[in-house]
Design a binder for these strands. Structure first.
Lengths: 160, 160
DNA sequence: ATAATAACCTTAATTATTTAGGTAATCAAT
DNA sequence: ATTGATTACCTAAATAATTAAGGTTATTAT
């Protein structure tokens, strides 16, 4: 089977997870390869879809988004999932929308500017068709909020 | 008061949120500025800390991380918060660790390769000092998993 | 009004990335 | 085992992107 990852790929992936705009010569130095070789590896990782993309991380506090909360939403079984999602998707304050185990349960991660905007978002959600119950938890503090995948644990992809 | 954001800054931020490795000339075209002007704006947004950094987004499915779950952890009030976090932080499968409203409640977002590794992570967590109760919800599907902040809503930062 | 600052531009210099072409190592099939 | 194809790498050259320099205009504060 071809297309396995070696330690060099893992090092590149790990570096890019923390440093998405890292330059190829920096990475090349890190992994002891020439710049074109790093370019080629990066291109392959992108083409294979292992790297989905890159993004800038903004500091939500600096934008005065002070409230992060999780909301469980119980949805009436007869209600269409897609409709729920369609409504969630247009709310820019909804950062994530998951369907989870438990009867008709959906789960939202939201970020709002203050308690007022949180309350109004919540009541908008409660007014959606089929929503029978919600339960919210506000985040007091976050000790780890990384999106970094521990790629070195994906052993079946890794060669040697 | 100085240091407000205008529409050009917002356009740059929005573009970078989706496209973290975007080149300055692409952005320059988008916002009708010269390349050096875009560079200067980006540098300021970084220096001001509005942009915290950049990262590569990996496709967790391609790495065979098939389970995403949320775990509520009730912690004994006498137990030190820091100790909890210290233990959570060393687990690479723990993506997020939040302290939330509700008595002694912590909340974890975890990503594991399969149900087996999830079970073993969960029982490790249950064995931590002071942990009195856990409740887990597995993610069935995620319809929106963006980290994109709706910056245009941060009106008090915005000029004009 | 005037000086200082900020934001922008163009051009030139520098630095990063890609392309081209070649070599050694791996792998599949004869 | 040998051959041919492929892959991963390298160096050097060409191209493209970024930064630096210097100047203009507009805004802001005194």
């Amino acid at each position: 089977m071809s297309h396995l990852l070696d330690d060099t790929d893992l090092a590149i992936l790990n570096h890019l997870q923390d440093n998405g705009r890292a330059q190829r010569n920096t990475i090349a130095e890190l992994v002891n390869l020439s710049v074109p070789s790093v370019s080629e590896r990066m291109k392959k990782l992108e083409e294979r879809g292992l790297i989905e993309g890159y993004n800038a991380i903004l500091n939500s506090k600096k934008f005065h988004f002070d409230i992060t909360a999780f909301i469980f939403v119980q949805v009436d079984g007869s209600e269409n999932y897609r409709d729920f999602v369609d409504k969630a998707i247009v709310e820019p304050e909804v950062l994530e929308c998951h369907s989870i185990t438990g009867d008709g349960s959906h789960f939202l991660k939201v970020r709002t500017k203050n308690t007022g905007s949180f309350e109004s978002l919540l009541s908008r959600i409660q007014a959606w068709e089929g929503v029978s119950k919600t339960r919210s938890n506000l985040v007091l503090s976050s000790f780890k909020e990384t999106r970094k995948l521990p790629v070195e644990h994906a052993v079946e992809l890794i060669k040697s």
